[in-house]
Amino acid sequence: MQTISEQDRRLIEAMQDGLPLEPNPYAVIGRRIGMDEAEVLRRIAALQACGVIKRFGIIVRHRELGYLANAMVVWNVADEQAALLGRRLAKFDFVTLCYRRARRLPDWPYNLYCMIHGRDRKVVMQQLASIIDRCGLRGVPYRILFSRRRFKQCGARYLSRATELERPPVTARRAVGR
């Protein structure tokens, strides 16, 4: 893991609520943190190039687009096979996330996770059958956990609790998406 500079961290924090929907949004972001527009643009490009920013653009919310069947599929695979299987799963365009996570034995033996977002459950089940078939996952223990209610979804915040307390109340900390 690389460490990022204080300036980059401040820039990412300034964009947490999203790019302003105004004609010169990068200049607006820059003014909040005393950085000129050219530097904002240069730093975003550099953060993308080094992979800290995985993607920069419009962030959609699946449910509002009619993708109501949201399945988290968890597998219990041999640790040494997880990377190979994970990279295979991640290639399907309906797989929106794919991670290896720590097990919590004995309660939770699963270590490989993928998310599938679909318009209906039947389609998601077909997609799951397809990846089981095509990734060599037949016979591997798994669980499929469809979402029911969404209680919260917003962009991540990275400020420490101490930092937040020091922030002046004028900074934009409104709820995302509202």
Binding site: M1, Q2, I4, D8, R9, I12, M15, Q16, D17, G18, L19, L21, P25, I44, L47, G51, V52, I53, K54, R55, F56, G57, I58, I59, V60, R61, E64, L65, Q153, C154, G155, A156, Y158, V176, G177, R178
Partner: peptide, 21 residues
């Protein structure tokens, strides 16, 4: 954005490159 279809325009940060989760 008001309808919630767009969460925001912005950056998706690689996990654990800034902060942790």
């Amino acid at each position: 954005r008001a309808a919630g279809v767009v969460g925001r325009v912005g950056a998706v940060i690689r996990p654990h490159s800034i902060g942790t989760s």
